[in-house]
Design a protein around this nucleic acid. Structure first.
Lengths: 209, 209
DNA sequence: CTGTTCGCGTGACATTTGTCACGGATTTAC
DNA sequence: GTAAATCCGTGACAAATGTCACGCGAACAG
């Protein structure tokens, strides 16, 4: 343990990764041992490298940060995961923590000490951005969380499928799909497809088609 | 002109800005003189600082990169603008260049030499990411292809307004709005609101509500 | 001047959407 | 056990959407 803390960077933007690497590389106690550009690759590298800490972007193509986090936790690698996100929505924070992330910080945090946060999660601490560190976010309840089925439907909606198409692909009645749609909007306090799509994209609920 | 090239960074993510700053600060010929976190602030700082080059993110809250670029060009400051984007859609590249950007590079460019790109645009060159450097993108023709009225309607749609609401705010028949909607989708080869919203957001056709 | 194109507007109508009321299967709380 | 809460499913129906055919005036080419 007197060794350096090993870090894996997972972010879809190479430029961002490079920036982080630079920010970390002059800290003698840290060592960036790998980079991945999407969730799937992140999981693969995590298994190979078994880093102490994984810095994971939330929104990514192929497999988003939440998914990847779950997969990595399931694999029992023992890495602590520090989630980076653009959004401060409680729902997302909650989901991240439930997925097993050990920290959640916002990209727009002005004075984020990334190295410090990494050390803290490596030490077993939970690190939350002040903006999201509401105690309520830690207590488990369901916020505006959608059910798996609903998320599935939402994905199809954003991809531009009609209720009928979704129904046929999922072998359901079109009515059923319509009701799922309605329930999703209910929880979100939304009444129109357009709003729904904006919300889904903004909050990274879906992988963009 | 033998002085350093002055640079203004405009990006909504503080962490990203800091990364860029680090990448640039060991180049002796460049000097980052300011940072802004949204388009509006970018315009303001541009007027104050009159930097040689402005590195501008495309997607930002308050005022997006395109808008900001136009405003800055209008103000006749003489700064060259290098647009950073996540998307390689032709439409966007075109819009950026028409707005007056001197360069367009993708954030995910693996080996982007940001410093080099900055020097080039400072020297008056146009810098395009290889992925988007199709000659067709340079020839002026269709913009987004949408008429002003259609863009106006689109803005309302993405904001979650119904045809009826739009009609009343614009003092039109609901039918008319519906037809505008149809025409927009026609030109874009789209048939559903959901797809339309995704497209509009992706290509920066609208200011997100 | 004349014909053509294009932006903007309209009403009518088929399709898709958003809502309603309801049932069965599970899970959790008492 | 029973009751309450969820999740998933259904049909029926009103409201919004997507498409149709069409008129009007302005801009432009001949």
């Amino acid at each position: 343990m007197s060794d350096k803390i090993t870090v894996l960077l997972v972010d879809d933007h190479a430029l961002v990764r490079r920036g982080f690497r630079r920010m970390l590389e002059d800290d003698e106690t840290l060592s960036v041992v790998g980079e991945a550009s999407d969730g799937a690759e992140g999981v693969k590298l995590a298994k190979e490298l078994k880093p102490d800490v994984i810095v994971m972007d939330c929104q990514m193509p192929v497999m988003n940060g939440l998914e990847a986090t779950r997969k990595i936790l399931d694999a029992n690698i023992g890495s602590a995961i520090l989630m980076l996100s653009m959004h401060s929505e409680d729902t997302l924070v909650k989901q991240a923590l439930e997925a097993g992330a050990r920290g959640y910080v916002l990209k727009e945090a002005l004075d984020l000490d990334l190295a410090g946060a990494i050390k803290n999660v490596a030490a077993g601490q939970t690190v939350l951005d002040p903006k999201v560190a509401k105690p309520q976010a830690l207590k488990g309840e369901r916020e505006s969380g959608l059910t798996p089925r609903e998320l599935e439907i939402l994905q199809y909606i954003v991809a531009g499928k009609s209720n009928k198409e979704i129904a046929s692909e999922l072998e359901l009645s079109a009515n059923t799909v319509a009701v799922h749609r309605a329930n999703i909007m209910d929880r979100l306090g939304i009444h129109k497809t357009a709003e729904l799509v904006v919300y889904a994209i903004r909050n990274g609920l879906v992988n963009l088609p």
